[in-house]
Amino acid sequence: MVSAVVAVTLRELLRRRRALVLVVALPLAFYLARIDTTGQAIRFLALGVGWAVATLSLFTHVSSRDLDQRLAIVGASPSALVAGRQLALTATGLGLAGAYFALVALTQDVTHLWTVALLLGTSVLIAAPLGAAVSLLVPRELEGALALLSIMALQMLADPDGTGAKFLPLWSTREFTTYAVDPSGGADLTQGLLHFAAVAALAAVITWIAGVLRLRPRRLPVPSTR
């Protein structure tokens, strides 16, 4: 069942050509805008990947809402539906992250290159459930896209050292970026990892619980024989 949902979601994503082009182009635009400073370029690339994947996740979940509801009514497991959609989105996101990792490896001189992979990967792992969680709270794609825009704008504008920034989902990217570019910059990799793990787990749990609550039909008793 999960694999069927994964296959279907991947097909749907591949056929949303225009959305896919935007998803690929957005991080590139962010990256090119800051290409002159390595650290900023990488951080903005990660935010761009995160935003793109979150938006793709939002659109996927909003547009598949009715179909998933229908499948759940006739007996599909809500957990399998949520998991299948999420796996497909995460895989797509990781593919995108992989491509951009190659771009960074080719065009930038980075001390800890593997941290860039970590950074892009964690952005995807946070963004996919984040977009799903947002989709559960909003009725339509437009509201969700605006909500994600607000989150991402805050993420870019907030002072990373302020306490408020720690409440934003992609705070960990800055720690990873600093570590990747300048290991002596006082970045705390462990703290970044802990923050990532906490945010990813929270977003995944919210997505799963809210998804299951929304999709699971009420259990109706079987009629007595006559």
């Binding site: 009715d66 229908r70 009514i73 006739v74 007996g75 109706l220 008793p221 079987v222 009629p223 007595s224």
Partner: peptide
Amino acid sequence: VERTARIGYAP
């Protein structure tokens, strides 16, 4: 509401 489990549904 009592209902059999094996259903089909067209919205």
